Computed example of a mutant assay.
Amino acid sequence: MNSLAPASFGAALQAASDAAGAQHYPQGTLYIVATPIGNLADITLRALHVLQLVDAIACEDTRHTQGLLRAYGIESPSSRLLAVHQHNEAEAAEAVIHRLANGERIAYVSDAGTPGVSDPGARLVAAVREAGHRVLPLPGASSVTTLVGAAGLVSEGEQSSAFVFAGFLPSKAGERDAAVLALADEPRSVVLLEAPHRIEALARSLAALGDRRVTVGRELTKQFEEIATGPAASLPDWFAESRDRTRGEFAMVLHPKPVVTGENAEGERVLRLLLGELPLKSAVRIAAEITGAPRNALYDAGLRMRDEPSD
């Protein structure tokens, strides 16, 4: 164990060695290593072991990665870090492939989360595979799966657990509005990412989706994490309630498009009447028994009704 390791991660480094040290780590392999999206404790033991083991670490930002390594007590000379980012990914891949051909183990990390998911890394992986070298992924933190797991996505039919990753929508207003309108017809859940300086503009575009539910994840895993769900139409007002809500990094999920049928319409009519007298779960159960409408669809409708502004 590195003697310079901070006390908070010293035990983790030893645990990483104990838990993962006996495993096989082939030479001439590119290791794709997921790193935390905010909370430093969200690092895996295998990731800590590999970051100490490899001959070099390819990374999106060498200064950021050096700080991350030091936080874990892993001291590495700057010569061990290789800059591989969106502006040099093709050329840098050649250098990585050369080192892999010489039998070196190379890790790749992005600034946060899982490389290749809206971050650099995909071109590097493709080039390494094309050259005939092995790519070994180490799973870990991802803002995409973190928010999907917390959003409570429920829909009817075979696509109930499916979601689409759309990432960052276009920055130009017209192109972004067009992309949102296209998403309006997508029946599955849709995961979006956005930067703080564009989040209010995205909220205004998404408001066109009306009562379709949206879950916003701000500063996920960090001290000021905030997760909220409501109709798309209310997003601009939600952000306007506090300037703090426009700070940080964002992931968002459009919930599945509600299934609208005559059966559901009657169920929603009955549900609206019952909600005036009963708790949501009881109203949903009774409305489903009376009309035969699916309970999940009625529950989503009930949540939308509950969020509607009162007269």
Rank of each mutant, 00 (worst) to 15 (best):
S161H: 12
E225G: 02
E226I: 01
A233C: 12
E219D: 06
G149Q: 06
V191H: 12
E194P: 01
S242Y: 05
R188A: 01
F239M: 14
R176W: 10
A228I: 06
E158W: 03
P187I: 02
E241S: 15
I199L: 12
R245P: 03
W238A: 14
R212G: 10
A182C: 07
L202Y: 07
D211A: 01
A207I: 10
K257T: 13
R198P: 02
F168E: 09
A151Y: 06
A195Q: 11
G248C: 09
A179K: 10
L254V: 09
P170K: 09
L206N: 04
V180S: 05
L153I: 10
R218W: 03
S171K: 12
K222A: 09
L235K: 12
R204M: 08
F250S: 05
A184M: 01
F163L: 02
A162F: 14
S242Q: 15
D211N: 07
A178T: 08
A232M: 07
A208W: 01
D211W: 02
F163E: 02
P196Y: 05
E241M: 09
I199N: 11
G230F: 13
D211G: 00
R188Y: 00
P231M: 10
M252T: 03
D237I: 00
W238Q: 13
S160C: 07
P258Y: 12
R243Q: 12
L153C: 11
S234D: 15
A150H: 08
D237E: 15
A195S: 15
A182K: 10
L209C: 08
A251I: 03
L235P: 01
A173K: 15
A184W: 00
K172I: 03
Q223M: 07
E156C: 05
S171I: 09
P187Q: 03
A162S: 15
